[in-house]
Amino acid sequence: MGLFSKDIKTMDDLFVHTLQDIYYAEKRIVKALPKMIDKASDPTLKQAFQMHLTETQGHVTRVEEVFRMHGVEAKTTTCPAIDGIIDEAEDIASEVDDPEVLDAALAAAAQAVEHYEMTRYGTLVAWAKRLGRADCARVLERNLAEEKAADQKLTSIAEAKLNIRAAE
């Protein structure tokens, strides 16, 4: 089902479709993060990725909870956006030999993922509230808060050392 498919007729349909999109994205990220952890050389970056892997596994569980709360089956719909962001990150990572430059590239790639997730969760929270599902919104707000915190942490790490080392 494409984003502008005939199957999406109501705001509720759009909410469920977008929930399926973020569910796919979170599952894809769970598979991608271990590769990023392996490629990172900076211990602080590795630790941030490891912590976010654990959080992302929790995001998957919370999205499944929202599906249950909303009374629909938990299933994914392919998300070309997250596929593109992750594929681009993997391409860049495979082309960089300098470990300091690679760490800066990995942090930037992870932030692109975080920004995508923040847009999706922000939208889902707003739509859940509009649909009278404050219960679903509260669960999704937890994921949104963790995505924002991960983005801020990556910014701090990149600005404090990764970008400086990569530029030397």
Rank of each mutant, 00 (worst) to 15 (best):
A109G: 15
R68P: 07
V125G: 01
S156F: 15
L106M: 09
N163S: 03
S41F: 08
T10F: 06
E168Y: 10
I8N: 10
H70S: 08
R165N: 15
A160I: 12
D97G: 13
I92Q: 14
P34Y: 07
L33Q: 03
I37R: 13
E100H: 15
Q57D: 10
E26A: 09
F67R: 04
E141N: 05
A108N: 04
A105F: 13
I164R: 01
A126R: 10
A105H: 12
A134L: 12
H52E: 06
A158N: 15
A108E: 02
T77A: 15
E117R: 06
I37A: 13
F49T: 00
F49D: 02
L140R: 00
I8K: 08
Q20E: 11
A40M: 14
G132E: 15
E65G: 14
V125T: 03
V30H: 05
E73G: 14
A137N: 01
E65N: 14
K6W: 12
V66T: 02
K153E: 15
A32Q: 10
I8Y: 04
L124D: 13
H115D: 01
V125K: 05
I164C: 03
T61N: 04
E114I: 02
D83P: 09
Q47W: 01
A126L: 00
C136W: 09
I92G: 14
V30F: 05
A105S: 12
Q57L: 06
E90K: 11
A108V: 07
M118Y: 15
T10E: 04
A149M: 03
R133H: 11
A48L: 07
Y24H: 08
A137G: 01
A89P: 11
K9P: 02
M118S: 13
Y121Q: 13
Q111I: 11
E90P: 11
L154E: 08
I92P: 15
K39C: 04
D13F: 08
N143Q: 08
L3D: 13
A74V: 08
E88Q: 03
N163E: 11
T123R: 04
L19C: 10
D103M: 00
L14F: 04
A110L: 03
L102Q: 04
V66S: 05
D42P: 02
D91F: 01
T44P: 05
W127T: 03
A48K: 03
I86A: 00
A160G: 14
V60M: 05
M36L: 09
N143G: 02
E64W: 09
T54E: 02
L33I: 12
K46Q: 02
E88W: 01
Y121C: 13
T76K: 15
A81G: 00
